[in-house]
Simulated assay, not measured.
Amino acid sequence: MLNVNKPVIPAEVADAIEELRRDGASNRGILLRSERIGNPYYTALTSIPYDTLMAALVNEYERELTEEQARKQTYAEIALTLQRHREGCGRYRKYSEDYAFADGVQYALDMLGIDALESLR
């Protein structure tokens, strides 16, 4: 099977597709609705290129993250990195590169007022 990249589409477009699918619309039906001005889903479906819409219908899709979701995801990644480096340095008795990296990340987060570990709780 080929590795096919799923397009990332805005949440409004994903909502329109999901609503139309709940109403029993096929891929062809969704594409036809995207061409009808006055259709309640028209604005959402035409906000992305036609090729992207077709790829989303055929290959599935991923939703674009909101700013808040993207921020939370970034904080979680930072927290996991920090945690991994802290756990890794526990094997060494001296101040290692891992521990220095973890301290640097923690310092930067403290300066920005971010509690990245909160996202893991």
Score class of each variant (00 low, 15 high):
R71M: 08
Y75Q: 15
R86C: 00
G29T: 09
R84A: 09
S96K: 00
Q83A: 09
Y75C: 10
D98S: 09
A116K: 08
Q106I: 06
R93W: 05
N39Y: 06
L117V: 07
A55Y: 07
A108L: 14
L120W: 02
Y75N: 11
R22K: 15
S34C: 04
Y95K: 07
V13A: 01
Y107P: 00
D103L: 13
T74M: 13
Y92W: 04
Y41Q: 13
R33Y: 05
L45T: 07
A16T: 14
G104E: 04
A25E: 15
T46N: 13
R93I: 11
L20T: 06
R33G: 03
I9Q: 04
E19I: 13
I78H: 01
I9L: 10
P10S: 06
A70D: 13
R84L: 09
G38S: 02
D103R: 10
S96P: 01
E87F: 03
P7L: 04
S47Y: 05
A100S: 05
D103A: 11
S47W: 06
G24A: 05
V4F: 09
S96I: 03
N39H: 13
E62A: 11
R91E: 14
F101S: 04
N39F: 13
K72N: 12
K94L: 11
I30V: 11
A116G: 05
L2T: 12
L31R: 09
Q73I: 10
A14R: 02
D115L: 02
E87Q: 03
S34R: 02
E60R: 15
N27I: 14
A100H: 07
R63S: 00
L120M: 07
K94A: 13
I30M: 06
A102R: 00
H85L: 15
A56N: 04
E97C: 15
L65N: 06
K72I: 08
Y41P: 01
A56Q: 09
D115P: 01
R22P: 00
E64L: 04
I9P: 03
L117E: 08
E35P: 02
A116Q: 04
N5K: 15
R33V: 09
G88V: 02
S47D: 02
I78E: 01
A70V: 02
A44W: 00
I114L: 13
L120K: 03
R36F: 10
V8G: 05
S34E: 00
I30L: 07
Y75V: 02
R93E: 11
I9M: 08
K6F: 07
F101K: 07
A16V: 06
I30T: 06
G88S: 06
G29K: 12
R91V: 12
R71H: 08
E18M: 14
R84C: 05
A102E: 00
A55N: 14
L65K: 15
H85W: 09
D103T: 08
I78K: 00
E64I: 04
R121K: 12
L31Y: 05
R93Q: 12
Q73R: 15
T81C: 15
N59F: 11
G38M: 04
E35V: 08
R28K: 13
Y61G: 07
L112P: 00
E62D: 12
V58P: 01
Q69M: 08
I9C: 10
A70C: 07
E97M: 14
L65Q: 10
N3A: 09
D115F: 00
L65T: 06
L2Q: 15
T66A: 04
Q73L: 14
A14V: 03
V4S: 07
K72H: 10
G104P: 00
D15F: 09
H85D: 06
T43A: 15
P49M: 06
L65V: 01
